[in-house]
Amino acid sequence: MDEQLKEAFINAKSKDKQVSYEAYRYILQATDKQVDWAYEVWEDLLEGLRSKNNHQRSQSVQYLANLAKSDPEKRMLSDLPELWEVTKDDKFVTARHSLQAIWKVGLAGDDLKERVMALMADRFENCMDEKNHTLVRFDIIQNMKHLYDQLEDEGIKQTALDLMHNVEDEKYRKKYLQVWK
């Protein structure tokens, strides 16, 4: 990892919101492709999932989701449940940002794709008691579309269609179906 990236990981925790945001965007861009330094920050990011700072929790999920494709040791297979927990964070914005990033874990191999799809499908079916459940459902359908667009796996599309067609409220069923138009 180069010095600029090390500095970005430090700056991402800055109290200065502009400094933190610029570092966050830089790290997301740097982790958008496969890298050879993922394990240099992996444990710190796992620790960030449990931070008292909700921004740290959300960012840690987003970084780890991006780094899943840079995980030859397949650590994500055992760490995914910790990331998934943040998608249910008490702070809805943290939960939502985490949920919106989790699909990227599914790009790291068939085993992770199947696990992410199973988690999302289960959540879609069982989130009716959650506050903002329609947004949760929308994000899950959008995640499945992102995965499908990247992997062109018809099983992903069929799962999403099955979930959407089982939505009783026609207004929301139509809204979710629009994602797949």
Results as ranks from 00 to 15, higher is better:
Met1Gly: 09
Lys6Asn: 04
Ala8Ser: 08
Phe9Gly: 04
Ala12Asp: 06
Ala12Phe: 15
Gln18His: 15
Gln18Ile: 12
Tyr21Thr: 14
Arg25Lys: 10
Tyr26Ile: 15
Leu28Asp: 04
Leu28His: 02
Leu28Tyr: 02
Ala30Arg: 12
Asp32Trp: 11
Lys33Pro: 00
Asp36Pro: 06
Trp37Phe: 06
Val41Pro: 11
Gly48Ser: 08
Arg50Met: 12
Ser51Trp: 05
Ser51Cys: 01
Ser58His: 05
Val61Asp: 02
Gln62His: 06
Asn66Phe: 00
Leu67His: 03
Pro72Leu: 02
Pro72Gln: 03
Glu73Thr: 11
Arg75His: 09
Asp79Gln: 06
Trp84Leu: 12
Trp84Met: 09
Thr87Leu: 01
Lys88Tyr: 13
Asp90Tyr: 14
Thr94Lys: 01
Ala95Phe: 13
His97Gln: 08
His97Asn: 15
Trp103Met: 04
Trp103Val: 13
Lys104Gly: 02
Lys104Pro: 04
Val105His: 06
Leu107Gly: 05
Leu107Phe: 09
Ala108Asn: 15
Lys113Arg: 14
Ala118Leu: 09
Arg123Glu: 07
Cys127Ser: 08
Glu130Met: 07
Asn132His: 11
Asn132Thr: 06
His133Glu: 03
Leu135Glu: 07
Ile140Asp: 01
Met144Val: 02
Leu147His: 15
Asp149Asn: 11
Asp149Gly: 08
Asp149Ser: 12
Gln150Ser: 14
Leu151Val: 03
Glu152Lys: 10
Glu154Tyr: 07
Gln158Trp: 10
Thr159Ala: 11
Leu161Cys: 06
Leu161Thr: 03
Asp162Asn: 12
Leu163Phe: 15
Met164Cys: 14
Met164Lys: 06
Asn166Thr: 01
Glu170Lys: 13
Tyr172Gly: 12
Tyr176Glu: 05
Trp180His: 08
